[in-house]
Design a protein around this nucleic acid. Structure first.
Lengths: 338, 338
DNA sequence: GACGCTGATGTTCTCGATAACAAGCGGGTG
DNA sequence: CACCCGCTTGTTATCGAGAACATCAGCGTC
């Protein structure tokens, strides 16, 4: 017991074998849980392992087994809430499955997806996760063929359906606005290069149309509160038509939008209802509270990695990444008068 | 050239050697930039490497060199802005120095620092980064002696000083409130187990006292907007004394506080000035805008990892982690009447 | 008592890379 | 012409683990 704290060099399998008076292969068998061993031998080996506080050297093991435990995780805009929560879920799933994530932040001023893909293309990774922008990720993918599985977070579907989770998100938001009596709506989208943007917007428009509503004005932001503020200001100066509600692609931009509306003297929700996406921790503490569609990004991250590992280990065939919990409507003051 | 996209198995150094008509060791020398090689040989090897799109197998290399390129990164509350930005900086620094971070989220409902340390203690890592709570991290550290270097993000000092960055942060906030004429102040701290909390609070109190001010009321939150709202509500019901300003340990809680003050009908900054820490992207879009002390968490993360790698590679002696840029005051409406 | 079978353990080779030492080959010199 | 030296390249061992095959001991059977 009580293996001393700091030792010199870590013990090898040969050290254990010598101490136990057996050959290294017997130790190896013990470690892999081989059943055909005499009880006495097993105990001697176990004692030696404990005594030396032996841990297998992962490099020796990886080299012999040709097993790679590294997954490349290329992510855009990790400074945003969604992507960073997604990463968190991915990290814990990877750890649970015995892999380690090689996180490569991509994006403006960091590393282009192209460069990042080149980078991991010449490292040894067991698989690749792409998170964030669809483009240029997609075109890079088709340009380079990978010998390892690749999954994309923007491919996630809602459990039990073939509906991308972000379409679902847009639909929930639209249906809430419809239920509140809104028909003429303004839309503040995310960047066009993100699947999440077009998917949310698509689901939103479709559901709105089904309910007899329509989108009168559209603006685009870059997910940041600043861009939300600025886009809303542009909308206001160009005229909102007679829109009574504003759908925003994420909460961060929605908070910027609320601020712009406040500055312009437009009352929320009386003059204009606002709904966002994400359920940021801050969303409840805007005034009025921001109605939103809560997305479990961490669960998404876990599912993305699980799907990838299944594919790496041959458990699952290539295909649709696994299924994630459905997003949830959270109603607050920005869409309902108290 | 144009090494075909997907090959079967990656080429080994022996494949390259055979193609170039030399021994594998010559290839190895070529790769390590050995100068004593005939130009003709060098070119043949270079051509073979390019032809096969050869990349050295990192496991073989690591095994032979006994080099570990993995750094354990134990972090608490990665869902918060500060820690996650710090991680981002750490990721890019690690990549730049040729290491990969093994990120282990710790905390409630995830993994205790104790368990995480045990975990990485029996993995092979070149070093350990501790981010977040001081306790129980510190006691775990003293209990276990590590054979690898350990750095703590809460040890960072402001460049050119021996002042912990968080003390500096508190001081800047206090001095701003003093300059605005405030003397009687309420304080909303972070969790006691975080060095950032006591450090910020300490710097805040000290600077306030130097300027003839004092802290009348104290409450504690857990960094979240919700806790900021609740702590502020508690303060209000217990009575603020005659405090004219409120210092908050981070922006997220400060946003919750603004919301509680709004709900209670207290005007900001007329009745109570509020200042936070972090400069969250949303801080500028609260109404009034939240005055804050901007901290470059990403730079801190880079410096922490750089300091660790210096120590791992024997470049720097154990001691104070490297120096980070000074925090910056950002004045907005929550402390100044327009 | 010799044979063969079976169960437990050992020997040797391999994974892909680098280090230490060895060796071939050319030219200059006594 | 033999020797030596330096430049370049090759041979062999090594890192730590696991797989294939070999071997050894003990036991039952004829």
């Amino acid at each position: 017991m009580a293996a001393g704290a700091a030792r010199g060099k870590p013990a090898t399998i040969y050290d254990v074998a010598e101490l136990a008076g057996v050959s290294h292969i017997t130790v190896s068998r013990f470690l892999s849980g081989f059943s055909g061993m005499r009880a006495a031998t097993r105990e001697r080996v176990a004692a030696a392992v404990a005594e030396l506080d032996y841990t297998p050297n992962p490099m020796g093991r990886s080299l012999r087994l040709q097993r790679i435990d590294r997954i490349a995780y290329l992510a855009d805009r990790l400074d945003e809430y969604g992507p960073s929560q997604l990463l968190l879920g991915a990290l814990s799933a990877a750890r649970a499955r015995g892999y380690i994530l090689d996180v490569v932040p991509t994006g403006e001023g960091v590393l282009s997806v192209d460069a990042a893909v080149d980078l991991v293309g010449r490292e040894r990774v067991a698989g690749i996760v792409l998170s964030g922008r669809t483009e240029p990720a997609r075109s890079v993918l088709t340009r380079r063929a990978f010998s390892v599985p690749v999954v994309e977070d923007f491919e996630l579907h809602v459990a039990g359906t073939s509906t991308p989770v972000d379409e679902w998100v847009g639909q929930i938001a639209a249906e809430h606005l419809l239920a509140q009596g809104h028909r003429r709506v303004a839309l503040l989208e995310g960047p066009a290069a993100w699947a999440a943007s077009s998917s949310r917007a698509g689901g939103f428009r479709a559901a709105l149309a089904r309910g007899g509503g329509s989108v009168l004005v559209v603006e685009t932001g870059d997910w940041s509160p600043r861009s939300g503020y600025e886009a809303t200001t542009r909308m206001l100066s160009a005229g909102l038509g007679d829109a009574t509600a504003l759908g925003v692609a994420n909460d961060a931009m929605a908070l910027g939008a609320l601020s712009a509306l406040f500055d312009a003297g437009i009352r929320v929700p009386e003059d204009l209802a606002v709904i966002g996406v994400d359920d940021l921790p801050q969303a409840a503490y805007a005034r009025p509270g921001l109605s939103t569609v809560a997305v479990d990004h961490a669960a998404e991250g876990r599912h993305v990695v699980d799907a990838l590992v299944d594919r790496i280990e041959g458990v699952a065939p290539p295909g649709v990444p696994s299924q994630v919990p459905a997003p949830l409507l959270v109603v607050r003051g920005s869409t309902t008068r108290a």
